[in-house]
Design a protein around this nucleic acid. Sequence first.
RNA 1: GACCCUUUCAUCUAGUGGCCAAGGAUAUUGCGUUUUCAUCGCAAAAGCAAAGGUUCAAAUCCUUUAGGGGUCGCCA
Length: 465
Amino acid sequence: MITTRFAPSPTGYLHIGGLRTALFSWLWARKNSGKFLLRIEDTDLSRNSDEALEAILKAFDWVGMSYDGDAIYQSKRFDIYAKYIDQLLEEGKAYKCYMTKDELTALREEQMAQGERTRYDGRYRDFTGTPPEGVEPVIRIKAPLDGNIIFDDGIKGEICISASEVDDFVIARAGGVPTYNFVVAIDDALMGLTDVIRGDDHLYNTPKQIVVYEALGFDMPKFYHVAMINNEQGKKLSKRDGATDVMEYKTLGYLPEALLNFLVRLGWSHGDQEIFSVEEMIELFDPKDINKSSSNYNLDKLLWLNAHYIKNSSNNKLAQMLKDFGVDIENHDKLELLLDATKERGKTLVELANQINLILNAPAEYNPKASKKAFKGTAREYLEEFANMLKNWDSTLHTPPEYHAVIDKFVADKEIGFGKIGQPLRVSLLGAMTGSGLDEIMAILGVDETINRIQKAIEFIDNRD
RNA sequence: GACCCUUUCAUCUAGUGGCCAAGGAUAUUGCGUUUUCAUCGCAAAAGCAAAGGUUCAAAUCCUUUAGGGGUCGCCA
């Protein structure tokens, strides 16, 4: 039985990097028919907000990741932590430290000046005298004094950190509120976690948590430290590098399956495979295939994946999603045609919405370059004649091939090239030289609207000349 | 500064001593398909951070150097 978790602190939105580690944890649990738990790390009451928590849950919901059971809130478990603190104190595995913050600062400055890694010097570890007046003590845990703290990381292999690098860290603040590394270890153990997958910014927390595991006699989970995601220049990812909030990707018109596919391939691979449905991810994911090194965030591939998933989405699903982008075509009688004609031309839902609007709305203006090129010479004459032809054929025209037949006939009758009518027609209908196929556009618009737009173009030509 | 992690095309990656004069994908460029654009197909260009070792043989093992990241809280 595999049990994993995601443990965000509700201080902001869900970060793209956080989603990736959550995804890895979720996949690993699902693959093994295990449990994926959610724990809210809200021990710092001043920094938490309900909105932040809601935002995180919303992001989970959007990408379709679900956790098992109820979310666990650390803020509701202070009595549990207090019990373990008492236990450690009684067993002599933890002690009260009366060092003031000023003293600590002085110590750190001195160590820094010596070129050492700053750490508590253990001065109250074996203190038996009379405590100084007016200092509310913190509780520190006794870390090993010598040797190494070694663990086998599921991604990076054996990690060995000298005990001299791990100090007697604080497990309860003055006032009794427990600290992060202490409660994490307790909760991970109590929640029955077998595999802890997290960012490698936690690598140095692991030896501290191991100290807690050993002091309390808990079984240790397997740790996996996933390297960070950096920006394209290899620097720390910041808001300037694009969207870091998961929900921003929804706004930008990305499909959740594209985002997940993108993220799963950032640091993880399965041979040469690039496209993974969620089902395939679950089937194939294994943390042993996660890369050791950090990866750089690059939008190109996400865009490509998004285009892929748009192309392969059903038209009904696309129509449903497009409502968030100001395009309501769910009841449009030409829905299928409309999306078939546009879905290969939009890399995001935003672009797709634009493509659809381009067809649905008569051109407000004609692209100057396009109209100059297309509306010249015989264009006006052909447009008028073509409109007449449409009028005559009206009752027989429904599908794209039927419209295509009209053009074919027209071109044959006139003994002209396709471009002679194609280009003027395209600019008349869309206002630009590029876009969906003419047959599809006319089939969507119908004869009346097509003629309408041709008339408008003719008026434009007349007024211009 | 100290400690830890890391380093294959611009980017994501395959690769665990011989199948590698390094494979795939994106992006780029060219060609083809298409009335246009897009899609799609084909092709090109592009990399083992550097230097030393070990070995018959090294992208793969070792050492050093350089680059990048992380951590050094009574934050999480």
